[in-house]
Amino acid sequence: MSNEISKFQDPGLPAHQHRKSDHDPKAEKRAEQQVAILFLLSAISTVGTVASYIFIKPGKFVFLPIMGDVDAQQLFLGLGLAFSLLFIGFGAVQWARRLMPDEEVIAERHEFRSEDADRKDFVDTVKERAGTVGLGRRSLIKRSLGLALGLVGITPLVMLRDLGPLPKKQLETTSWAAGTRLVTDPGDRPLRPEDLEVGSVAQVLPFLAQGEERTLENIGKDAVLLIRLRPEEFQLDSKRLSWTHDGIIAFSKICSHMGCAVALYEQQTKHLLCPCHQSTFDVTRAAKVIFGPAARPLPQLAITVDSEGYLVAQQGFTEPIGPSFWERSS
């Protein structure tokens, strides 16, 4: 078998091969000119860049294959910049390849480990210096310093406290309450059951009183999806069925997995799909999860109509909407 003695010997660095430009003055001249031309091309490109900036009006489009219509000003600015940079790069690399010395050189490398004597010296020095401090003897100082250093890190943590308020019950509540009218988003128009055709979907939000502002925080909790099916298509227990009205069922639009808007409704299969992680919910079975990573159905909002015939909530959501959190009890 092979061992160290019989290994193939290192023949050493192969002999250097000279380039044509090393000994032929004509080739050398040619290489020099090539490099210069590349640098000049860069200069010309910069002139083109500046010209594009000044002379091409915004809003003009040119067609590029695959890319489609591209704004002419951005395109020529970019091309000018690209070529002015690329040609400097090509020139420099060509210069190095053709004209600079290309003979490989050897540098020695040394093991990093210091001489044993130096290492011992170092250890002795450390021991001696440490000895003058006498940490080993002064355990009172050592311990109190440890305590101080351990505690000092608390300050920056405490000072971050005012980054935000405590969550309190905010994750568990929405603006929906008994009798809140469902209004369209966008438009804020109240809805009657007959506004929704069988098979259609609408995004709704709670009615907003005069002078109130709708915030993104509210939309992030209140967004609800209305879907109208034929009443016989539901496979619900009697309680959940009583939460629907004439084939209209309402779910929180905020995904119970990670809070994306569950916006894709497949009319044929009556499935709701979240575009973020593909959790799929069956509308006919109270948004039961039938595929994907979501672990809970979308919370259902109980709805009915008020005396004027507009859709309203029977009550607020009976569970927190959106993604899970530690304090969530179900």
Binding site: L75, A82, F83, L86, G89, A92, A96
Partner: peptide, 24 residues
């Protein structure tokens, strides 16, 4: 000079390529 020229030139090439991508 070799490595300075090659590495320096290469910086311009990388910048040029991102500019080209950004343009088109």
């Amino acid at each position: 000079p070799v490595y300075m020229a090659k590495a320096g030139g290469f910086f311009f090439i990388v910048f040029g390529v991102t500019a080209l991508l950004g343009a088109v």
